[in-house]
Structures are given as C-alpha cells and as structure tokens.
Design a binder for these strands. Sequence first.
DNA 1: CTATTTGCAAATCATTTGCAAAAAT
DNA 2: ATTTTTGCAAATGATTTGCAAATAG
Lengths: 146, 146
Amino acid sequence: MARPPTLADRAQANGVKMTHQRRLICDALEASDDHPDVDALHVRARKNDPKLSLSSVYRTLRALETMDMISRHDFGDGRARFEIKDDRHHDHLIDTTTGRVIEFLDPKLEALKNEIAARLGYELQSHRLELYGQPRKRSSGANTAG
Amino acid sequence: MARPPTLADRAQANGVKMTHQRRLICDALEASDDHPDVDALHVRARKNDPKLSLSSVYRTLRALETMDMISRHDFGDGRARFEIKDDRHHDHLIDTTTGRVIEFLDPKLEALKNEIAARLGYELQSHRLELYGQPRKRSSGANTAG
DNA sequence: CTATTTGCAAATCATTTGCAAAAAT
DNA sequence: ATTTTTGCAAATGATTTGCAAATAG
C-alpha cells in the first residue's frame, strides 16, 4: 500500500516540523495542477482551515524553496508563482489569452542552451525560458483541452 | 553630418515633449552599455543635474517603454533593468559572478522557439530567455575581456 | 498663455519581520 | 518544559500617484 510520499511527507523527512498549517499549504500545492501564486494557495489551503494566515503561506513557501522542494517563477505579472519541483526539468509556455501555463521539454533546446553558454565562455548554472503565445486558430487541438 | 538620431531625438519625434529631465534620462541610458536599473540611471543622469528626481526617472522610463523605445528586463533580483530597444532581437546571459549581462543571438534557438510554440498549438508572441552562468576556468577568452 | 511635467511626500503592492500567544516534540 | 511556529500588525523595498509649483511649446 506504499503510495508515493506527499510533499508534506517529504518535507517532514527533510527535517521540517510538520505543523497543521504547513500541511495545509503542502497539500494545497500538491493538489494544484497549475502554478498558483501566494494568494491562490492561501485561498485553497484556507478551504481546509479558514484561520490559516497569509504569513504562514509566505513563510512555508520560502522554506520549501530554500530546501529546493519547490520552484518559484516570475511570469512577469509581479507575483511569484510556485510548483513542486520534480526530477523532470521543463520550461514554460504561457497562454497570454488565459494565463494558463503549459510545461514542455525539448531536448534540442536543452542541448542548445549549454552549447550557447559554452560558446560565450560560460558554464551554464541555470536558465529561464518562457514562451508567451496565443492559441493558433484552427489548431490541431493541442491547446483546446481543459 | 547627419549623425544617427539619439534616443532623445527619436522620443521627441515620437511626440514626447522633450523636457530637460527627460533628456538627461535618455542621454544617461544611451551612454550606458550595460543594463542599468532605475537607481543606477538616476545616479548617472544626476551627474548632469543633481536635482533630477527619482519619480521623473520612473515616469520617463515607463513612457519610453510604453512607446516601445526601450525594453524592461527582470533578471531575478527584484529591480527592473532597462536597455534601448533596437531592431536586433537578442537574449541575455547573466554572469553570476559579476552580474554582467552578455547579449547574444542564436538563429537555431530563434527557430526552435517558434517550432516549440507551434508544436504546442500556439503562435509565439514573445519570449524570455536568460542563461545564468559562471566563466569557464581556462576559457578560450570569450569572457575575459572588459 | 495653458496644458503638461516636475519634485515631493504619501500611497500601493507584494513580501518580510517583530513580537506575544499558541502549538509541537 | 522548551523551542519553534503562528497570526497580526507594522516594516520593507520597489514603484506609482496626488498635488501645487515650475516649464515646454
């Protein structure tokens, strides 16, 4: 019956004192399939306990980020967005008509990034790639699903 | 003797009322070969007139950005960085040891970005690519020059 | 002249932090 | 019991804005 450990489980395993509110936040993030911002997470986690404070959301997210269990993004709208970090690196395409964030991974692109850095005399440490686009009309359907 | 028009010239041609302080700011940005933030620009422009206010720098930069004459970047440190927009699109590599920003353009990468967006069913409107790296030791010299 | 812009100070917005009360081990 | 965490409210830092005085065209 061993199910994959939840974010809360893994945080606890990493030495985090698992409080009620931290569990609420971890669970809310885990239940999200988008890239919620702090307020969205606060709202979602509050559904399970309305007295959760915004500060706790901020504090918990920062802690999780510091221990490298989640990643923080900035998609250009001034608020930070979060997602659970998994082993699979990916980049993001932001649908400018809906704000929906689509994850993708392109091996050619990954290779190219390193190649470019090397050509400039650098060793790549990290990068950020975001594509901003609108659905193609008469598309083959790749972006029409919910 | 026609020299290429300055940013101030072009802004004025675009209908901007060219005040003393706006000229200071345009000139300071034009004289910059890096990607200064608002405070840096304020300091630089103030060298030619110490009573220039920070608000004017903010207001002028926003105006220039709105008329698409400069671009605003966020390299992850919380402050906005600016550069004059020219016809040549480019991406950025940030030297994490010095903060220096290196511009580059890779045709393969440009093509790939569109290809990826298309594959996902999107028409690419804009994108953001930043590489963060450190100089390679024993490098061939690409990053050793000023 | 007359509308626009400036400088200043107060306002915003997202995020952080100090501190006393509350909870975890 | 002792240390850590919470919630609140006040502090922060970047940026914006209201308003009276100054200025461009």
